[in-house]
Amino acid sequence: MGINRTVWSEHYSQGRGFRRLGDDEKKLIVEHAPAQKGCRALDVGCGTGEMSAYLASLGYEVDAVDLADTALARARTDHPDATVRWLRLDIERDDPAPLDDALYDLVVFRLSVAFVHDRTRVLHALGRRLREGGTVLVITPLAAHTSAEKRHIALDEDEISALTCGWTIVQRLAVGDLAALVLRGPCADTVATERSVPATGYAVAGALAIVTDEHGRVLLGWSNRGMWELPGGKIEGAEPLDGAGVRELAEETGLHATGASVVTILTDAAQGVPRVTAVIRIAGVTGTLITAEPEKFTRWEWHDPHALGCLGPVFTPGAQALNTVWPGVIAGLPPVHSYPTANAGPRGSAGCRSTASPPTAASSPCPQAPA
């Protein structure tokens, strides 16, 4: 079941919902996100509102969002006395303006995060709405405990690794057959990371594709090597550099480029082996994004360029390529030589550090439970 208003509206109008909120989940909230006066909570994918009403009973001021009107109608009927602001909002695609400029002490995804495609982007965006010491709590079924026909409602271990990447504090707890992820500090530094298998040969030549969507978000894949990577790979034979990027994009993601150009050539070394990387800017794409090579990648997601400095491990050439298109967005990169092409335009030098100060969160009236 995908995130689609029509599908979900039918789901709730048929009287269906999700598993009831358990005592062990309530205990989890009390222990790891205790409320005090003035604390605010956001319940994402609130469904029929059981979690929202419970948070309100603890003293939270609650915003509850769901994309289905039928879910919210049932929530209002089932919890008429709950002090909750019910909002229709697709947290992944809609303008977040209905949330105003609210800062939260707690953001909860209960049984909903598996239905969000760009989970990393969404969680980090909401993480920037946390007050200092605030918490994102994800409660999710696990693929290992879920039948094959319901696999889409659960996360496997690789998906959990991608979801928690880039957070400063990550705590994982068992809640019956569910997993609870307690996340704090949504901006762990991006770290340029090399693959564990050493490079071989006298030199390595490859191409990496920079692809953006209509919102300017860039495509990255969580690889089975435990890092974020751009679409790309080694050049085959005498193929052109831009052709290599286009080919790798199609092979890995199912997307087909409508235009491509080389914006710069990067040279460095991997495990002592010289490495040449062509950075290919893709003008546009057609097709449907898929994980075409699951043996290499767990998933593909669209990321906001301004958040690229908070992703955790990123394959070194990919981090350097991103920094040539968005100079200074990733700090502390290892040395690299960049040779912009004539059609690249002014982009700044690769590897430069950002001088902008990170945003600071408002102080929280709520205690931060130890991780």
Results as ranks from 00 to 15, higher is better:
Arg19Ser: 14
Val314Tyr: 10
Ala371Thr: 06
Ala179Lys: 03
Thr341Arg: 07
Gly312Glu: 04
Ala361Lys: 08
Ser52Asp: 10
Tyr202Asn: 13
Gly59Trp: 01
Thr83Gln: 02
Cys165Ile: 02
Thr288Trp: 00
Gln171Asn: 14
Pro240Asn: 14
Pro96His: 09
Leu230Cys: 13
Val107Gln: 04
Ala356Trp: 08
Pro240Glu: 13
Leu173Phe: 06
Gly345Lys: 09
Ala207Gln: 02
Gly17Asp: 13
Thr291Val: 04
Asp118Ile: 03
Pro335Thr: 12
Gly233Asp: 12
Val273Gln: 04
Thr258Asp: 14
Ser354Glu: 10
Val116Asp: 07
Thr355Val: 13
Phe297Asp: 07
Phe315Pro: 01
Ser57Met: 06
Pro340Leu: 08
Thr286Gly: 09
Val336Gly: 13
His124Met: 08
Trp300Asp: 05
Cys366Trp: 02
Val138Asn: 00
Gly22Pro: 06
Leu208Cys: 11
Gln14Met: 10
Val116Gln: 04
Leu266Glu: 03
Ala199Pro: 01
Pro335Ile: 07
Asp69Phe: 11
Leu311Pro: 06
Ala362Glu: 11
Ala260Pro: 14
Thr355Asn: 12
Gly221Phe: 09
Glu159Tyr: 06
Val273Ser: 05
Asn343Tyr: 09
Ala321Pro: 09
Pro358Trp: 01
Glu301Lys: 01
Pro370Ala: 13
Gly328Trp: 10
Val218Lys: 12
Phe109Ile: 01
Val246Arg: 14
Val211Asn: 11
Arg19Met: 12
Phe109Gln: 02
Arg5Met: 08
Gly272Glu: 02
Gly312Arg: 07
Pro186Glu: 02
Ala82Thr: 02
Leu58Tyr: 04
Val170Tyr: 09
Ser13Asp: 12
Val65Gly: 00
Ala257Cys: 07
Leu178Thr: 08
Pro359Gly: 07
Gln320Asn: 04
Gly15Trp: 13
Ala114Val: 03
Gly237Lys: 09
Glu10Phe: 04
Gly254Phe: 02
Pro294Thr: 07
Leu67Phe: 02
His337Gln: 14
Ala192Ser: 08
Leu87Trp: 00
Glu229Ser: 11
Glu293Lys: 12
Arg151Ile: 11
Phe18Tyr: 15
Pro359Cys: 05
His303Cys: 09
Arg40Trp: 09
Gly201Trp: 02
Tyr54Ser: 00
Glu239Tyr: 10
Gly201Glu: 00
Thr77Gly: 04
